[in-house]
Amino acid sequence: MQPIGIFDSGYGGLTVFRSIADQLPQYDYLYLGDNARAPYGNRSFETVYEYTLQCVEWFFEQGCPLVILACNTASAKALRNIQQIDLPRIDSEKRVLGVIRPTAEVVGQYTHTKKVGVLGTRGTVNSGSYLKEISNFYPDIEVFQHACPLWVPFIENGDYQDEGIDYYIRHDLELLFAQSDDIDTVLLACTHYPLLADKIRKFLPDKDITLLGQGNLVAESLTAYLQRHPEMETRVSKGGTKRFFTTDSVADFEENATRFFGEAVRASHVHLEL
């Protein structure tokens, strides 16, 4: 088997995996959550790169010819080095893709004011990756960023439906829109954040503002990628299987993964040196 690998530091990537599996159900998939070392958002570039590369190498050992980093922080802090430095050394025929470029490629289709807001972890925001990528595709779009460091802990702890997080969502949105009243598109640049979409919409200053999650965008980009690269598409096995792995407690992963993936999952443990 040569499944497609899907990686995240924890659970958030399951929202992307859900969209990919819905749009491309014919392929085999492996999902790995590095829950033992999550969250990645506040870790250094060097640490995120080290952890991500270790997980990518694990996918390769399982036979994956293609790995999707369904994690904005890993995409921002590790993807470029892995693509440019490690893949030529490991196997020049394997591929690792991220979630930032597919999002940046299409965000211009959603904004009329050319003002886009980006909400993400500190790691993603501080990397400036969205500023660079969106500018490459749409030089006329102005991007306003804001880091929301408390959102992921609420989500990971299962408290994202409680009223306790409402204050932080309202406050963070106020800080984002204080940068520009003309923002008409808000990008959720963390794969955890779709679980907060209903609450975020409630506190947006205008109901006509577009709220963009990444799941469908990444799934559509992967579909197009496989169509453009038949040499990769023919390598990926097609059995319609989905297997889940975690570096932490299997019981905890299975309990929490359901709300991200939308169905019950069964997982296995992977031991990686911390």
Rank of each mutant, 00 (worst) to 15 (best):
I4Q: 02
G13M: 09
G13I: 01
I20Y: 14
A21D: 08
Q23P: 04
Q26I: 08
Y31E: 06
N35K: 08
P39S: 05
G41Y: 03
N42M: 01
F45T: 03
L53D: 03
F59D: 00
F60D: 13
G63L: 01
C71A: 04
S75L: 11
L79Q: 08
P88G: 13
I90A: 04
D91T: 12
R101Q: 12
R101I: 14
P102F: 15
E105N: 13
V106N: 06
V107C: 12
T111Y: 14
T124H: 14
K132D: 09
F137R: 03
Y138E: 09
D140E: 09
I141C: 05
H146C: 11
A147Y: 04
P149R: 05
L150P: 00
W151C: 02
N157F: 05
D162H: 08
Y168R: 00
E174P: 04
D181P: 04
L187Q: 02
T191A: 10
L195I: 02
L196I: 01
R201Q: 05
D206S: 13
I209A: 13
L211R: 08
L211Q: 01
Q214M: 14
E231D: 15
T234D: 13
D248G: 07
F253C: 09
N256C: 08
F260I: 04
A267T: 03
H269C: 00
L272P: 02
L272H: 15
L272Y: 02
L274C: 06
